[in-house]
């Protein structure tokens, strides 16, 4: 989107703030219905980022699939759970919680340190032709990513059928 600088920055800040607030809300709120709605906020904010990065199709697909379908289904399911019994029991701070918190905080920090170090410009070559890619990128992880996105694209997508098969299996087992 060709926005003037200050407005673009304000929108990025707004989206990031919404993303953080929503993410914290999903984890910290005790009422599951609030968590479900703040998950919706997170997904909308992510699609706002895609809009700002000029990839409209991904943004709209994100809105349609994640907010319009998945989040509505989650809210549907959570609504039938009785809210009061969840919010009554106070959560006690255990060692396990502390350990999980530590682990979860280290993951974003390690991601934040690796993202600036990675050379993202090398990945631009994937869109042009396959030959340059093979020579230019020696890294194993990059090779896997390129092969998944080019040669093995169809098998990679077909793997998602497993989800469908397991869903159908669950339904038939529940019916019997």
């Amino acid at each position: 989107m060709d926005l003037p600088g200050p407005i673009h920055e304000i929108l990025v800040l707004f989206g990031g703030f919404g993303l953080l607030l929503g993410g914290l809300g999903v984890v910290l709120l005790t009422n599951p219905i609030y968590s479900a709605f703040s998950l919706g906020l997170v997904l909308v904010c992510i699609s706002l980022f895609y809009f700002l990065l000029n990839s409209y199709f991904v943004a709209v697909a994100q809105l349609l699939i994640y907010v319009g379908a998945i989040n509505v289904l989650i809210i549907f399911a959570v609504m039938f759970v009785n809210g009061s019994e969840w919010s009554k029991d106070k959560n006690y701070w255990t060692i396990g919680d502390g350990f999980t918190l530590l682990l979860c905080i280290t993951i974003p920090f390690s991601l934040m340190t690796t993202i600036p170090d990675t050379s993202w410009y090398g990945i631009l070559w994937t869109t042009r032709s396959n030959q340059i890619v093979e020579q230019g990128l020696i890294n194993n992880v990059q090779q896997i990513g390129i092969h998944l996105a080019t040669d093995f694209y169809l098998p990679f997508e077909l793997i998602s059928l497993i989800l469908l098969v397991s869903l159908i299996g669950a339904i038939t087992m529940a019916r019997q």
Binding site: I33, F37, G40, V44, Y56, F57, V60, A61, L63, L64, V67, G68, A69, N71, V72, I75, F76, M79
Partner: peptide, 25 residues
């Protein structure tokens, strides 16, 4: 004049039920 105009309308009209669900709940 987005390149995905109609698709945006479809996606956005699928968000509206969230507001209605919220109001109903």
């Amino acid at each position: 004049d987005l390149s995905i105009g109609v698709f945006l309308w479809i996606a956005i009209s699928s968000i509206a039920p969230i507001g209605l669900l919220m109001a109903g709940y």
